[in-house]
Nucleic acid binder design. Structure first.
Lengths: 338, 338
DNA sequence: GCCGATCGTCGAAGCGCTTCGACGATGGCG
DNA sequence: CGCCATCGTCGAAGCGCTTCGACGATCGGC
């Protein structure tokens, strides 16, 4: 492995000149630069990352803390990860992958030992223990999610409140008066991942705003969970003509159940789902849905981290506007029925 | 951030002594060690990763090259990643996440700049361009998969040939004479990911060995793909009583189709799937399946990398034995029908 | 009781890079 | 025409750690 000294000799310049060619931090004449670059290419020189980090106190690596449990949200998590890695590369950074299970210790380890310049943390709970830990680090962090007390830490997420409102607005616009919300599983509420609450709150507010009668219920996983959730919804408010489903894994069994019980979508009942685009389109009937814009969120998180790193101003709370895409699962209630 | 010098002063020893306490490479008296450790704890000292890498030429980081495209295999990929990260941590290593799209350049970048000690590469194609690139690196690599020419590179994977044989053996043991293989989508064959061929070859060999009549067909994604695949299989060999399904995403529509066409599982037709355990159990009928042991493969890959790193012998091709788990999708053909 | 081996510790030399200050050479300006 | 600012380059210091050789002290063997 050639070093910067080898390059310097080959080009007939000093090592510092090579460094300046590389970093562009000082003016270098065109000829010199050309000679240096030729030498670099010829020798196949690649600066040693450790040496660089030591001398410059920059690693060009960011940490991504992901929940690597193997559960339903895997595809979404993967989309986040993909977006983060891709975006990071576009800023010439690499990504160190940490798991959520390492908890606070993992963050501290990589931060204290100066392995990373910044951290991006996913899957935050309402009162996440990692928040205080992150605050103590010298590296900046960006959260994907919105924990309770996030003062001083940048957060990026979908605006779940607005998403709920938009779903309801869409259904209200189609004339629906009685609308049910199939929520996430109780486990999600218990885990206190805040998007569940934010969605629910938004949903209730929008119900009032649009003057619609609504019911909401969490939904246990599996066909049985869906059955009992629907039973509860129907019991609490009869004449439901529309459902908002904020539960990816319930989608399939829910559609099966509706089919089995002779409720046609969208003729008898309309459905708006909150889920990734491809999940919506791969259902037996293509669902009108609000996408979880994992790609945008991930990219924005990295962008925010980069701004933080070079001391630029950032907005500390960025909630992305939801986008509803109409497909085949929502029908109009004719005025005569209203 | 305290440095090793600060610790040394606080403990009243030289920096090298602190280093030896940390590494254990030289004997240190119990008292000295205690004093040093106390100083480390008190100051909250964490060695600087870059400095360490520079001085020792070890980074304690391994690269994981994952296909971050968002497609059907996401859950399996995630399981690999989880296993790799977890195993790496148990060897006190971290994981740098690279995407397959960066191709050869990504590998070379992290290797040449000494960011990692070893590489683990997933999703290899038959004549993967990355193989020659990997050979040129000074860091060892471990492949998850089995490309054509892998001499000199360690490979770990499920033994797909044996898996096919086991699936067939199971069905043959239940008396089935006419068996169809629902293969991966043509795209998989085109991409030349070798597991498809290995499975197919194993399937054909086992057909001969057990003297069973079989047909095989790739299967396009979606309900339509499944329909036409089944039509082809039925056309080429009538009286099918069993299916081997080596196509995770076809599973659901296939079961729907069988149901819709009045073929009961397992009474009329038996099914063995090759897929992750949870996919098999979450189907409407719990499927007899051969698991993709992503966890074991990932763990073994890391273990192999670690052996390589400290110069121990490794087996260069490790194909893990498949394990079939009986569930509810296979029925016995009574002798009278044979 | 003396010698060589072993133990426990230290000091110094790097590892490969960045960066700061310095310095000769230009060039613009009054 | 002389002076100061700027340009282009160099040299050296240092980032924080590991590791090698050295060296006094201890200990067992004869």
């Amino acid at each position: 492995m050639p070093t910067i000294n080898d390059v310097a000799k080959a080009a007939g310049v000093s090592p510092s000149t090579v460094s300046y060619v590389l970093s562009g931090r000082r003016p270098i004449s065109a000829e010199t630069r050309a000679r240096v670059q030729a030498a670099i290419a010829e020798l196949g020189f690649h600066p040693h990352a450790g040496a660089r980090a030591l001398a410059s106190s920059k690693t060009n690596v960011i940490a991504l803390v992901a929940p690597l449990r193997v559960d339903v949200n895997v595809p979404v998590i993967m989309q986040f990860a993909t977006a983060v890695v891709t975006a990071a590369r576009s800023y010439n950074h690499d990504v160190l992958l940490l798991t959520k299970d390492e908890g606070t210790a993992g963050l501290e380890r990589v931060a204290h030992s100066t392995m990373v310049d910044a951290l991006i943390v996913m899957d935050l709970e309402r009162d996440d223990v990692r928040i205080p830990a992150l605050r103590k680090l010298k590296q900046p962090s960006v959260l994907i999610g919105l924990p309770a007390d996030h003062t001083g830490i940048a957060c990026v997420d979908l605006d779940f409140g607005a998403a709920a409102r938009e779903a309801l607005a869409h259904l209200a616009g189609h004339g629906h008066q009685r609308i049910g919300l199939v929520g996430p599983s109780p486990a999600v509420y218990k885990r206190q991942t805040t998007y569940a609450d934010r969605f629910l709150t938004g949903f209730l507010e929008a119900s009032a705003e649009f003057g619609r009668r609504t019911v909401t219920h969490p939904c246990e996983p599996g066909a049985e969970g869906v059955r009992s959730c629907m039973a509860d919804l129907d019991a609490e408010l009869d004449g439901l003509t529309a459902l908002v489903v904020h539960n990816e894994e319930a989608l399939r069994p829910l559609l099966d159940l509706l089919h089995a019980t002779g409720r046609r979508v969208p003729e008898d009942i309309s459905v708006v789902a909150i889920c990734p685009r491809d999940v919506a389109t791969m259902m037996p009937i293509s669902l009108t849905s609000i996408d979880i814009p994992a790609h945008d969120v991930g990219t924005l998180a990295v962008e925010t981290a980069m701004r933080l790193l070079d001391g630029r101003r950032v907005e500390y709370t960025r909630l992305l506007a939801p986008g509803l895409v109409e497909r085949d699962s929502c029908g109009e209630i004719s005025t005569s029925h209203r």
